[in-house]
Design a protein around this nucleic acid. Sequence first.
DNA 1: TTTAGCACTTAACTTAATGGAGTGCTAACA
DNA 2: TGTTAGCACTCCATTAAGTTAAGTGCTAAA
Lengths: 347, 347
Amino acid sequence: MITLTERQSLILKAIVRDYTEGGNPVGSKSLVEELPMKVSSATIRNEMARLEDLGLIVKTHLSSGRIPSIKGYRYYVDHILTPEKVDNRDLKVIQHSLGGEFHKIDEIVAQSADILSQLTSYTTFTLRPELKDSRLSGFRLVPLGNHQVMAILVTNNGDVENQTFTIPNDLSGDELEPVVRFIDDQLIGLPLQDVLAKLQQEIPLKLSHYLQDPDGFLDIFGSVLSKAASERFYVGGKLNLFNYTSLQDPKEMRSLYSLLDQTDNLANVIGSPGQHIQVRIGNEITNDLLKDYSLITATYDVDQHGQGIIALLGPTAMPYSRMIGLMGAFQRELARKLLDYYRYFDE
Amino acid sequence: MITLTERQSLILKAIVRDYTEGGNPVGSKSLVEELPMKVSSATIRNEMARLEDLGLIVKTHLSSGRIPSIKGYRYYVDHILTPEKVDNRDLKVIQHSLGGEFHKIDEIVAQSADILSQLTSYTTFTLRPELKDSRLSGFRLVPLGNHQVMAILVTNNGDVENQTFTIPNDLSGDELEPVVRFIDDQLIGLPLQDVLAKLQQEIPLKLSHYLQDPDGFLDIFGSVLSKAASERFYVGGKLNLFNYTSLQDPKEMRSLYSLLDQTDNLANVIGSPGQHIQVRIGNEITNDLLKDYSLITATYDVDQHGQGIIALLGPTAMPYSRMIGLMGAFQRELARKLLDYYRYFDE
DNA sequence: TTTAGCACTTAACTTAATGGAGTGCTAACA
DNA sequence: TGTTAGCACTCCATTAAGTTAAGTGCTAAA
């Protein structure tokens, strides 16, 4: 367990700030002017040597200034930093852009990713509140003619999922009705997870009373259901990658970029953060492609509607205190907006 | 009007080929070995000087080898090149990947963009056949409970478009039925364009017999309708940009990339190509961001179902003959597949 | 018309020189 | 014991100079 003196702490803080703002290694002389106490550059050099021994700062070459190491950022984030109060203008932007009327949760969540990336110039990820508590509240089969049927699934949270299928023989609404009614009787009100489970056990058997070939129908129902139960990260500010990356090689650039495109893979990268705002720096991120970046993740709580996730990817040299402040604001504002949205369907 | 001698033509052809394959300016000595006739490098130098006078090739500096100019590529494409027969393996790939079963036209069109970009390592754009001949074949309003209604629109080509709306007061199916029936009577069978037109004229008046407040309903219907009538390019191989661009500056990279993201803007860039395969090179493309690239565009015909567009963006130094061959193959295969698809709904 | 020969140009690479920023260490000082 | 001034040292970045290889245009002869 590392403990720093007051002065060492101030020096580390100043190094992190300078490097984050200017992007250049920080030397002892420039620190003399910035530190609140009156000490010579030699003294600072001595302290810096100690910070280096502790592994908190490193040199880029033998006689260069210092930059924070991963460990240094870590210490800074854990013990020195205080979250910055969100700028009033930023807060206005957030509230205004979430203030409009939305027809889908996904729109709200996607919009959040966009705003956050706009405010930070980094790349952001958002995940809607978990669906595990969602319940099936309605199922429809709408014959469209021409061998097509649309299956629609509604949850108690107002989520609507639909898919169109091509079927060998046209069906009339009358033929479909008993099946839909059966589904309604048996499954409405159950959590989606349970519906998925039942779908593999008792339902096929019972359904065979109503339909000669229940398999086709079950495929359809299952397909919409799993689409509704799937969880997808929204990515905002993908293009911002160009701002903060130091990569030159187009090949690496490409593979990084395509990582951001594989939204189904992002869950592995981001994981499930705890209650508080979590910062992972450099190689603390499990994915090798991101070992030179930092990832800030946080959950947000929407009462009994479960938790969602917001995340922020940027350079290791990012203004952590401002970013953490912003994440906090988003936690609150997004939760509030969604609570508002859900209330509409709870009535 | 430029006319080249047989020998000049062969030299230009060789320069284009060499530069396209190797990426380096081509000198007179290396051409000696490649040309089918027996001439010295000095002779080739003389010919090259003439080609340069004509503006077909240029030097990168006073004593460098030559590279084709825009005008040179133009001449090559117009007078020298012969489309390459499509590799059998490539044809298999195309046919196989379009061979599967699709539930939506958009899936086929998007898939085509992906395959073509995969085969070429460039970026591709595809547009589905024009909708102008599509006719409205069905309209549904499905109440979902919780203040939500889904509007579904079906065309005679099997296109399905849907959108969910939040409405102030819940409506039952019974209330909606006369409205839907009215729409069916008045509008089914008409081309979408005509439907759009009528929607702004006679319909609102007549509809007021059935509904107290037709405006809300018309908004809904109009919204789905315009969604169905909107034409969107699919973009394939966006990431391939990293392969063929020579840009270093992340800022330019970014603006180029975001051009590809604005799918609604692409129509301006791509235009409406004529019957044949059209090649635009460098500054022949109207968009300034693309002045260092080449764009190959072509239409494909699906009989009475209208025309679609495929396009290919790559470096000016691209193997035109192979690319034009591939575009030809796609014209045929995509048209065939779509004809097949439509036939299903024509029955 | 073609060709050999040659002087000339340029990019790309290597090497050397210089200045500046920063460090660690030593010795003196409070 | 902690702090400071001074100094030798290191490394990067930039500039300058030199070298090589590829390629050209031009001239004069075949």
